[in-house]
Protein backbone atom coordinates (compact mmCIF):
# COMPACT_ATOMS: atom_id res chain seq x y z
CA UNK A 1 0.00 0.00 0.00
CA UNK A 2 1.43 3.40 -1.00
CA UNK A 3 -1.18 6.09 -1.26
CA UNK A 4 -0.26 9.76 -1.05
CA UNK A 5 -2.35 12.55 0.41
CA UNK A 6 -1.48 16.22 0.27
CA UNK A 7 -3.29 18.44 2.76
CA UNK A 8 -3.18 22.24 2.50
CA UNK A 9 0.28 22.29 0.93
CA UNK A 10 1.68 25.79 0.44
CA UNK A 11 5.13 26.56 -0.97
CA UNK A 12 6.23 29.27 -3.42
CA UNK A 13 3.42 29.52 -5.99
CA UNK A 14 1.51 26.53 -4.56
CA UNK A 15 -1.35 27.61 -2.32
CA UNK A 16 -3.40 25.23 -0.16
CA UNK A 17 -3.13 22.22 -2.39
CA UNK A 18 -5.21 19.18 -1.53
CA UNK A 19 -4.73 16.07 -3.61
CA UNK A 20 -4.95 12.32 -3.17
CA UNK A 21 -3.09 9.74 -5.20
CA UNK A 22 -4.31 6.18 -4.80
CA UNK A 23 -2.23 3.08 -4.26
CA UNK A 24 -0.58 1.80 -7.48
CA UNK A 25 -2.11 4.67 -9.44
CA UNK A 26 -0.35 6.60 -12.20
CA UNK A 27 -1.47 10.19 -11.76
CA UNK A 28 -0.33 12.81 -14.23
CA UNK A 29 0.23 16.32 -12.94
CA UNK A 30 -0.52 18.52 -15.94
CA UNK A 31 0.07 22.24 -16.14
CA UNK A 32 1.86 25.05 -17.92
CA UNK A 33 5.41 26.13 -17.02
CA UNK A 34 5.56 27.83 -13.63
CA UNK A 35 2.34 26.21 -12.41
CA UNK A 36 4.10 24.67 -9.40
CA UNK A 37 4.36 21.06 -10.62
CA UNK A 38 8.04 20.54 -9.76
CA UNK A 39 7.58 22.36 -6.45
CA UNK A 40 4.86 19.89 -5.53
CA UNK A 41 7.11 16.93 -6.39
CA UNK A 42 9.92 18.42 -4.28
CA UNK A 43 7.47 18.79 -1.40
CA UNK A 44 6.43 15.14 -1.69
CA UNK A 45 10.10 14.10 -1.86
CA UNK A 46 10.89 16.25 1.18
CA UNK A 47 13.59 18.20 -0.66
CA UNK A 48 12.17 21.59 0.38
CA UNK A 49 10.40 22.93 3.46
CA UNK A 50 6.67 23.50 3.14
CA UNK A 51 3.48 24.32 4.97
CA UNK A 52 0.76 21.68 5.25
CA UNK A 53 0.99 17.92 5.50
CA UNK A 54 2.04 15.03 3.32
CA UNK A 55 0.72 11.56 4.15
CA UNK A 56 2.05 8.26 2.85
CA UNK A 57 -0.46 5.49 3.58
CA UNK A 58 -2.33 7.88 5.88
CA UNK A 59 0.80 8.42 8.01
CA UNK A 60 2.25 11.97 8.07
CA UNK A 61 5.83 12.10 6.79
CA UNK A 62 6.49 15.84 7.27
CA UNK A 63 9.18 15.14 9.87
CA UNK A 64 10.95 12.57 7.70
CA UNK A 65 13.91 13.99 5.72
CA UNK A 66 14.18 13.25 1.99
CA UNK A 67 16.66 10.41 2.50
CA UNK A 68 14.21 8.52 4.72
CA UNK A 69 11.09 8.85 2.57
CA UNK A 70 11.91 5.93 0.23
CA UNK A 71 11.08 7.77 -2.94
CA UNK A 72 12.27 7.20 -6.47
CA UNK A 73 12.69 10.54 -8.23
CA UNK A 74 13.40 10.93 -11.92
CA UNK A 75 14.47 14.53 -12.35
CA UNK A 76 13.88 16.64 -15.42
CA UNK A 77 17.66 16.91 -15.95
CA UNK A 78 18.04 13.24 -14.87
CA UNK A 79 21.02 14.18 -12.66
CA UNK A 80 23.05 11.05 -13.30
CA UNK A 81 26.27 11.33 -11.32
CA UNK A 82 28.88 12.16 -13.99
CA UNK A 83 31.76 10.61 -12.04
CA UNK A 84 30.12 7.18 -11.76
CA UNK A 85 29.56 4.68 -14.54
CA UNK A 86 26.12 3.23 -15.28
CA UNK A 87 26.44 0.30 -12.84
CA UNK A 88 27.74 2.54 -10.06
CA UNK A 89 24.94 5.05 -10.68
CA UNK A 90 22.31 2.33 -10.35
CA UNK A 91 24.07 0.81 -7.34
CA UNK A 92 24.40 4.17 -5.55
CA UNK A 93 21.27 3.88 -3.41
CA UNK A 94 21.97 0.23 -2.61
CA UNK A 95 25.49 1.05 -1.38
CA UNK A 96 24.06 3.80 0.81
CA UNK A 97 21.73 1.21 2.31
CA UNK A 98 24.85 -0.87 3.06
CA UNK A 99 23.60 -3.90 1.17
CA UNK A 100 26.07 -6.73 0.61
CA UNK A 101 28.18 -6.79 -2.57
CA UNK A 102 26.30 -9.88 -3.80
CA UNK A 103 22.90 -8.30 -3.26
CA UNK A 104 24.01 -5.11 -5.02
CA UNK A 105 25.40 -7.05 -7.98
CA UNK A 106 22.23 -9.12 -8.35
CA UNK A 107 19.92 -6.10 -8.16
CA UNK A 108 22.00 -4.05 -10.60
CA UNK A 109 22.07 -6.99 -13.05
CA UNK A 110 18.31 -7.34 -12.71
CA UNK A 111 17.69 -3.65 -13.42
CA UNK A 112 20.14 -3.59 -16.33
CA UNK A 113 18.15 -6.49 -17.76
CA UNK A 114 14.72 -4.89 -17.17
CA UNK A 115 15.77 -1.57 -18.68
CA UNK A 116 17.63 -3.31 -21.55
CA UNK A 117 20.89 -1.48 -20.87
CA UNK A 118 23.20 -4.37 -19.96
CA UNK A 119 25.62 -3.38 -22.71
CA UNK A 120 26.01 0.10 -21.18
CA UNK A 121 27.00 -1.01 -17.67
CA UNK A 122 30.56 0.34 -17.76
CA UNK A 123 29.88 3.56 -19.66
CA UNK A 124 29.88 7.01 -18.11
CA UNK A 125 26.87 9.37 -18.46
CA UNK A 126 28.70 11.58 -20.96
CA UNK A 127 29.00 8.54 -23.25
CA UNK A 128 25.22 7.90 -23.33
CA UNK A 129 22.46 9.15 -25.62
CA UNK A 130 19.38 10.94 -24.24
CA UNK A 131 17.23 7.79 -24.32
CA UNK A 132 19.95 5.68 -22.70
CA UNK A 133 20.40 8.23 -19.93
CA UNK A 134 16.65 8.10 -19.36
CA UNK A 135 16.74 4.35 -18.87
CA UNK A 136 19.73 4.53 -16.52
CA UNK A 137 18.07 7.26 -14.44
CA UNK A 138 14.88 5.21 -14.19
CA UNK A 139 16.85 2.11 -13.19
CA UNK A 140 18.63 4.13 -10.50
CA UNK A 141 15.33 5.52 -9.21
CA UNK A 142 13.86 2.00 -9.00
CA UNK A 143 16.93 0.33 -7.47
CA UNK A 144 15.94 0.88 -3.84
CA UNK A 145 12.43 -0.47 -4.48
CA UNK A 146 10.82 2.86 -3.58
CA UNK A 147 7.23 3.02 -2.41
CA UNK A 148 6.51 6.06 -4.60
CA UNK A 149 7.92 7.13 -7.96
CA UNK A 150 8.06 10.79 -9.01
CA UNK A 151 8.83 11.69 -12.63
CA UNK A 152 9.41 15.34 -13.47
CA UNK A 153 8.93 15.91 -17.22
CA UNK A 154 11.31 13.04 -17.91
CA UNK A 155 10.77 12.94 -21.68
CA UNK A 156 11.28 16.66 -22.26
CA UNK A 157 14.66 16.46 -23.94
CA UNK A 158 13.90 13.47 -26.15
CA UNK A 159 12.76 13.33 -29.75
CA UNK A 160 9.13 12.35 -30.41
CA UNK A 161 9.82 8.74 -31.39
CA UNK A 162 12.13 7.88 -28.48
CA UNK A 163 9.84 9.65 -26.04
CA UNK A 164 6.76 7.77 -27.32
CA UNK A 165 8.60 4.44 -27.16
CA UNK A 166 9.87 5.04 -23.63
CA UNK A 167 6.44 6.21 -22.45
CA UNK A 168 4.84 3.00 -23.66
CA UNK A 169 7.57 0.93 -22.02
CA UNK A 170 7.30 2.87 -18.79
CA UNK A 171 3.53 2.46 -18.65
CA UNK A 172 3.89 -1.31 -18.94
CA UNK A 173 6.64 -1.34 -16.30
CA UNK A 174 4.62 0.81 -13.89
CA UNK A 175 1.68 -1.59 -14.16
CA UNK A 176 3.96 -4.59 -13.68
CA UNK A 177 5.70 -3.14 -10.61
CA UNK A 178 2.45 -1.68 -9.21
CA UNK A 179 4.24 1.39 -7.96
CA UNK A 180 2.32 4.57 -7.10
CA UNK A 181 3.53 7.16 -9.59
CA UNK A 182 3.20 10.87 -10.17
CA UNK A 183 4.19 11.90 -13.70
CA UNK A 184 4.63 15.59 -14.43
CA UNK A 185 4.16 17.04 -17.90
CA UNK A 186 2.92 20.15 -19.67
CA UNK A 187 1.77 18.21 -22.72
CA UNK A 188 -1.88 17.16 -22.74
CA UNK A 189 -1.37 14.33 -25.26
CA UNK A 190 1.44 12.88 -23.15
CA UNK A 191 -0.78 13.15 -20.07
CA UNK A 192 -3.70 11.52 -21.84
CA UNK A 193 -1.53 8.65 -23.02
CA UNK A 194 -0.02 7.95 -19.59
CA UNK A 195 -2.63 8.78 -17.00
CA UNK A 196 -5.24 6.84 -15.12
CA UNK A 197 -6.18 10.24 -13.72
CA UNK A 198 -4.98 13.74 -14.53
CA UNK A 199 -4.67 16.58 -12.03
CA UNK A 200 -4.46 19.94 -13.79
CA UNK A 201 -2.35 22.45 -11.92
CA UNK A 202 -2.40 26.12 -12.82
CA UNK A 203 -0.95 29.13 -10.97
CA UNK A 204 -0.29 26.99 -7.90
CA UNK A 205 -3.71 25.44 -7.45
CA UNK A 206 -5.34 22.21 -8.56
CA UNK A 207 -7.95 23.25 -11.12
CA UNK A 208 -9.40 19.87 -12.01
CA UNK A 209 -8.85 16.20 -11.26
CA UNK A 210 -10.35 13.46 -13.38
CA UNK A 211 -9.90 10.88 -16.10
CA UNK A 212 -8.35 12.10 -19.38
CA UNK A 213 -11.82 11.98 -21.01
CA UNK A 214 -13.38 14.04 -18.21
CA UNK A 215 -10.65 16.66 -18.49
CA UNK A 216 -10.94 16.86 -22.28
CA UNK A 217 -14.69 16.80 -22.67
CA UNK A 218 -15.69 18.71 -19.54
CA UNK A 219 -12.84 21.08 -18.76
CA UNK A 220 -13.27 23.83 -16.20
CA UNK A 221 -12.72 27.37 -17.40
CA UNK A 222 -9.11 27.52 -16.18
CA UNK A 223 -8.30 24.14 -17.79
CA UNK A 224 -9.95 25.37 -20.99
CA UNK A 225 -7.49 28.26 -21.06
CA UNK A 226 -4.57 25.87 -20.78
CA UNK A 227 -5.45 22.93 -23.05
CA UNK A 228 -7.91 24.89 -25.24
CA UNK A 229 -11.66 24.46 -25.68
CA UNK A 230 -12.24 21.48 -27.98
CA UNK A 231 -14.86 21.19 -30.71
CA UNK A 232 -17.34 18.61 -29.39
CA UNK A 233 -19.66 16.81 -31.79
CA UNK A 234 -22.57 14.57 -30.74
CA UNK A 235 -22.81 11.37 -32.73
CA UNK A 236 -26.12 10.35 -34.32
CA UNK A 237 -24.98 7.13 -35.95
CA UNK A 238 -22.10 4.61 -35.61
CA UNK A 239 -21.05 1.84 -37.94
CA UNK A 240 -18.14 -0.59 -37.30
CA UNK A 241 -15.71 -0.85 -40.19
CA UNK A 242 -12.71 -3.20 -40.23
CA UNK A 243 -9.31 -2.77 -38.45
CA UNK A 244 -10.83 -1.18 -35.30
CA UNK A 245 -12.25 1.74 -37.22
CA UNK A 246 -15.72 3.15 -36.64
CA UNK A 247 -17.63 5.39 -38.99
CA UNK A 248 -19.61 8.04 -37.11
CA UNK A 249 -22.07 10.69 -38.29
CA UNK A 250 -22.42 13.94 -36.37
CA UNK A 251 -25.08 15.94 -38.20
CA UNK A 252 -23.73 16.48 -41.71
CA UNK A 253 -20.19 15.54 -40.73
CA UNK A 254 -19.09 12.00 -41.45
CA UNK A 255 -15.90 10.81 -39.73
CA UNK A 256 -13.80 7.70 -39.31
CA UNK A 257 -12.35 7.24 -35.83
CA UNK A 258 -10.18 4.58 -34.31
CA UNK A 259 -11.87 2.77 -31.42
CA UNK A 260 -12.34 -0.68 -29.96
CA UNK A 261 -15.86 0.17 -28.82
CA UNK A 262 -18.75 0.58 -31.22
CA UNK A 263 -21.13 2.89 -29.36
CA UNK A 264 -19.55 6.35 -29.60
CA UNK A 265 -21.45 9.19 -27.94
CA UNK A 266 -19.26 12.18 -28.62
CA UNK A 267 -16.22 13.09 -30.68
CA UNK A 268 -13.92 16.01 -29.84
CA UNK A 269 -10.96 17.71 -31.45
CA UNK A 270 -8.91 20.75 -30.48
CA UNK A 271 -9.07 23.76 -32.84
CA UNK A 272 -5.30 23.59 -33.46
CA UNK A 273 -5.58 19.94 -34.56
CA UNK A 274 -7.84 20.73 -37.54
CA UNK A 275 -6.19 21.54 -40.87
CA UNK A 276 -7.84 24.26 -42.97
CA UNK A 277 -7.48 24.62 -46.74
CA UNK A 278 -8.91 27.07 -49.27
CA UNK A 279 -8.97 24.41 -51.98
CA UNK A 280 -10.25 20.86 -51.98
CA UNK A 281 -7.45 18.76 -50.43
CA UNK A 282 -6.15 15.83 -52.49
CA UNK A 283 -6.50 12.25 -51.22
CA UNK A 284 -9.44 10.05 -50.19
CA UNK A 285 -12.62 11.75 -49.10
CA UNK A 286 -12.32 10.65 -45.45
CA UNK A 287 -12.58 13.03 -42.48
CA UNK A 288 -12.73 15.95 -44.91
CA UNK A 289 -15.45 18.49 -44.30
CA UNK A 290 -16.59 21.36 -46.52
CA UNK A 291 -17.90 24.50 -44.83
CA UNK A 292 -18.30 28.23 -44.91
CA UNK A 293 -16.11 30.68 -43.02
CA UNK A 294 -18.37 32.64 -40.66
CA UNK A 295 -16.01 34.32 -38.20
CA UNK A 296 -12.32 35.36 -38.06
CA UNK A 297 -10.64 36.29 -34.77
CA UNK A 298 -7.02 37.40 -34.95
CA UNK A 299 -4.61 37.31 -32.00
CA UNK A 300 -0.87 38.04 -31.84
CA UNK A 301 0.39 34.89 -33.57
CA UNK A 302 -2.70 32.81 -34.40
CA UNK A 303 -6.02 33.19 -36.15
CA UNK A 304 -9.15 31.48 -34.86
CA UNK A 305 -11.73 30.80 -37.58
CA UNK A 306 -15.30 29.54 -37.18
CA UNK A 307 -16.44 27.26 -40.01
CA UNK A 308 -20.14 26.35 -40.43
CA UNK A 309 -20.78 22.88 -41.77
CA UNK A 310 -24.52 22.22 -41.88
CA UNK A 311 -25.84 22.42 -38.34
CA UNK A 312 -22.35 22.17 -36.74
CA UNK A 313 -19.84 24.94 -36.24
CA UNK A 314 -16.14 24.08 -35.87
CA UNK A 315 -13.43 26.32 -34.48
CA UNK A 316 -10.06 26.09 -36.25
CA UNK A 317 -6.83 27.69 -35.02
CA UNK A 318 -3.91 28.25 -37.38
CA UNK A 319 -0.72 30.36 -37.49
CA UNK A 320 -1.25 33.90 -38.79
CA UNK A 321 1.24 33.54 -41.68
CA UNK A 322 -0.55 30.46 -43.05
CA UNK A 323 -3.94 32.16 -42.77
CA UNK A 324 -2.64 35.31 -44.51
CA UNK A 325 -1.19 33.24 -47.39
CA UNK A 326 -4.70 31.87 -48.18
CA UNK A 327 -6.30 35.32 -48.49
CA UNK A 328 -9.64 34.23 -46.99
CA UNK A 329 -12.70 36.35 -46.17
CA UNK A 330 -15.92 35.72 -44.31
CA UNK A 331 -18.34 33.74 -46.48
CA UNK A 332 -15.60 31.92 -48.43
CA UNK A 333 -15.81 28.16 -48.90
CA UNK A 334 -13.11 26.15 -47.07
CA UNK A 335 -12.19 22.49 -46.47
CA UNK A 336 -11.25 21.00 -43.13
CA UNK A 337 -9.29 17.82 -42.38
CA UNK A 338 -9.85 16.14 -39.00
CA UNK A 339 -6.95 13.73 -38.42
CA UNK A 340 -8.24 10.45 -36.91
CA UNK A 341 -5.29 10.31 -34.48
CA UNK A 342 -6.25 13.67 -32.95
CA UNK A 343 -9.95 12.80 -32.45
CA UNK A 344 -10.96 12.02 -28.85
CA UNK A 345 -14.05 9.95 -28.23
CA UNK A 346 -16.51 9.21 -25.46
CA UNK A 347 -18.14 5.79 -25.73
CA UNK A 348 -21.26 4.52 -24.03
CA UNK A 349 -19.40 2.92 -21.15
CA UNK A 350 -17.62 6.16 -20.07
Amino acid sequence: MSSIKLKNISKYICKNINLEIFDKELLVLLGPNGAGKSTLLNVIAGLIDYEGSVFFNKIPVDKEPANKRRIGYLFQELNLFPHLDVSANIAYGLRIQKQSQDEIRTRVEELLQIMKIKHLSSRYPKELSGGEKQRVALARALANSPRILLLDEPMNSLDYRTSKYLRTEFKILQKKLGITTIYVTHNFYEAEEMAQRIAVLDKGSVEQVGSPQEIFFHPTEAVNDFIGAPNILTCDYCNRLSFGLIEVKCGDISLVVSSEREKIKKVAILPEDIYLSDTRPPGPDVNRVRGKLTEIEESSSTVCCTVKTGKNSLKVKLPQEIFASMNLNIGDEVWLILAPRKLKIITDGE
Binding site: N42, A45, L47, P65, A66, N67, K68, R69, R70, I71, G72, Y73, F75, E77, N79, F81, Y92, G93, I96, Q97, R140, A141, A143, N144
Partner: peptide, 19 residues
Amino acid sequence: NYIYAARTLGAPDIEIITT
Protein backbone atom coordinates in the same frame (compact mmCIF):
# COMPACT_ATOMS: atom_id res chain seq x y z
CA ASN B 1 20.40 18.70 -8.39
CA TYR B 2 23.08 16.04 -7.85
CA ILE B 3 22.72 16.60 -4.12
CA TYR B 4 18.93 16.29 -4.42
CA ALA B 5 19.35 13.10 -6.43
CA ALA B 6 21.66 11.59 -3.78
CA ARG B 7 19.25 12.63 -1.04
CA THR B 8 16.26 10.95 -2.66
CA LEU B 9 18.40 7.83 -3.05
CA GLY B 10 18.72 7.73 0.73
CA ALA B 11 22.10 9.38 1.30
CA PRO B 12 22.67 11.35 4.52
CA ASP B 13 24.78 14.55 4.41
CA ILE B 14 28.12 12.91 5.19
CA GLU B 15 27.67 10.32 2.40
CA ILE B 16 26.61 13.07 -0.01
CA ILE B 17 29.80 14.99 0.78
CA THR B 18 32.11 12.00 0.40
CA THR B 19 30.47 10.26 -2.56
